[in-house]
């Protein structure tokens, strides 16, 4: 089994990569909205998906979760 420091080190770059992809997903969405020029016309369903991702990020950032973060996220994604 890995030590806490080993876990932090081993998966840091991979987590960094995954977070950058999420950041790019939000940027990509906003760029698409700007190109379309009509946020209210076609954004509602997509915004719901983005809201769930934001909620998921908040769960990930929780210091003392009530249950494993992975379980909370799977429950959350089941609502989309």
């Amino acid at each position: 089994m890995l030590s806490p420091a080993q876990v932090a080190d081993t998966y840091f770059l991979e987590s960094r990569h995954q977070l950058l992809e999420i950041a790019a997903y939000f940027d990509r969405y906003e760029a698409a909205v700007a190109r379309a020029g009509d946020r209210n016309g076609h954004a509602a369903a997509a915004d719901r998906k983005l809201a769930v991702i934001r909620e998921a990020l908040a769960i990930i950032a929780t210091d003392k979760p009530a249950q494993e973060r992975t379980i909370s996220l799977l429950e959350l994604f089941a609502t989309v």
């Binding site: 992809e21 790019a24 990509r28 760029a31």
Partner: peptide, 16 residues
């Protein structure tokens, strides 16, 4: 794969 730019982010920059 992990430490530099990803294909999706590269396309984002091409679009920008």
């Amino acid at each position: 794969p992990i430490t530099k730019c990803s294909p999706k982010r590269a396309v984002d920059m091409l679009e920008k």
